[in-house]
Write a protein that binds this DNA or RNA. Sequence first.
DNA 1: CGCGCGATTGAGTAATTTCAAATCTAGTGG
DNA 2: CCACTAGATTTGAAATTACTCAATCGCGCG
Lengths: 188, 188
Amino acid sequence: MELDFLRTHIHQIICLTDEEFEHAASFFTRRKYKKHQYIIQAGDVASQEHFVVKGIVKSSYTDHEGKEYILQLAMEEWWFSDPNAFNTGMPATLNVDCIEDTETLSISFDNKEKLCASSRKMEYFFRKKYTTGNMALQKRVLALLSNNASERYKQWLNQYPSLHKRISKTLIASYLGVTRETLSRLSL
Amino acid sequence: MELDFLRTHIHQIICLTDEEFEHAASFFTRRKYKKHQYIIQAGDVASQEHFVVKGIVKSSYTDHEGKEYILQLAMEEWWFSDPNAFNTGMPATLNVDCIEDTETLSISFDNKEKLCASSRKMEYFFRKKYTTGNMALQKRVLALLSNNASERYKQWLNQYPSLHKRISKTLIASYLGVTRETLSRLSL
DNA sequence: CGCGCGATTGAGTAATTTCAAATCTAGTGG
DNA sequence: CCACTAGATTTGAAATTACTCAATCGCGCG
């Protein structure tokens, strides 16, 4: 069941009793989205943080010229949101839509705060989640600063071997910050 | 005093009593470094997280060709470490050294965990700190993906107006991911 | 069969880097 | 106060990388 998947995920970091997990789970809602459906749209409020149970979503920013830049490609066991919108209550600037049919367990900002306030372990869990998120983001900044297109692509293939079968090269290019034509020309 | 500065900083997010703050403060050690001195060196363990009381440090990665890429320029009221080394115990891959004489309040990984375990409010504080850190990192990723050199420089000047007087353009260039020659040629 | 979409290829252009040299500037010692 | 030096910044010209726009290819599916 979907909740088991969340439970396994949480248990990689903390150990919850059945009651503790059920308490935590009660703050989440289960959601289903179809391929190409939007989960978050720029301009809307984005008060939910989502845990991917099944599927893949892409989180992206579209600039004034209509060019799209992908911030995250989130598959099973990843969390996503528009962090700025989620944490500040401001309108979303990102779009999130589904690359495959997707199921999530989602939690509102208020519920997340209530959950953290009521469960020491879950606050610890989310703190640790953010530290790993920080490490990943910093790694990506470093890659963008120091690696050329070919090296970034190689590193990406290494880091996410299971993703590249499920995602078009056009999207990978947009994640890496190059055009699809350039990605296509890379010799590796 | 240095601790007052930390206290003010913490109070932007949570409210601590005198005793609570003194308890928290007891986990930190005060440190002084001179300009050009290393605080963290690649290869060493980096078990401390640092809060800047005074001064500026740069956190950077040096690749096999000797090129340096700046991950962070941390001034007063910023936190820095080698996040990967700090959280995993692995040897540091980053160098951190002082651009000015610098004073920090520093906390070890173990002490940070003890502090969080003993103080609900401080665990909340660090969780919130990481969420804002995530937002900032994501903003930087987006800037690297979507903006050219000139736009990144403009955005940086806007975002950190007080920093550019204290930092050489060579370092700013390295932070922005361009050569100093390119930065020098930008018309803005 | 033919449409539609993603991937590739080609040619010209724009942005950035590289390497080298010239210029500027702040601090030091005479 | 001035000359001098080290470091930072700027400028120049050629080379490289990546982008743009356009055309072609490949393939699954109705």
